[in-house]
Amino acid sequence: MTYRTPKASSQPALRQPLWLRLLGLAALALLGVGVTLALFVSPADVNQGNLIRIMYAHVSVAWISFLAVFLTAVFGCLFLWQGRRVHDVWAVANAELALVFAALTLVGGMTYSRPTLNTWWTWDAKLTLTALMFALLVGYFIVRGLIDDPERRGRVSAVVSIIVLASLPFNYLAAEWFRTLHPAKSLALDGSGVTMDSSMVQVLLVNVAAAALLYLYFMLERVRLGRLEANLDEAQDTRSAGAPQEVIHV
């Protein structure tokens, strides 16, 4: 019995397969639709005017970044459970996208708060949470970079991703309560109670779908590359692990 069975079951294609290319194009097209809707079709907000148009991209990107962190930890758990290299590949793909989407969320948040609140940074709970998550993801990649052995790297980064995921609810609560002195009173103030016009909801959903499709495309492409990389390693690995030696019985 072996611990790490080489998984040659479905060798990823060297060239990008057609369906994946089509998925990319579809994501791009939907993004175009989403941007058009956000810029030209959506009504301006009663309070925030045209600034609300940033919100569509900002919110979509933010949601996806949290989804990616969640999936990083899920694949991390799978790696710890089964020790299959491919799960680590999925985990990294998600972690990288989480980092990028979190960065985009931060940029979006700052762009949003500059004209509305006249400052580049506000201690908005969700923005603060995203900033902390960004820092945690940077830590994840620093740790990865310091470990050479692929299995130990996979194990330790899986552990880190679980710790990161578990921290999010606490970081959120803390950031939420941070602005107000008293925990209990802030819950209704975060805008979730505000009702949105149904046309705006539709535009938001289109944008979320576009971001999700983009994310899906990049993730699948990254996993494809990651698996090619892993297979290359595996092949080299098998060579350097040496031919079977004589059985010594003493």
Binding site: S240, G242, V247, V250
Partner: peptide, 26 residues
Amino acid sequence: TGLARRYGAAYVLKNINLTVTPGRTL
């Protein structure tokens, strides 16, 4: 059985097959 161990990319133990009977000194 076929035991190998690497540090980083380099294998320090390569595909070892060894059986030791109890009580032996090696």
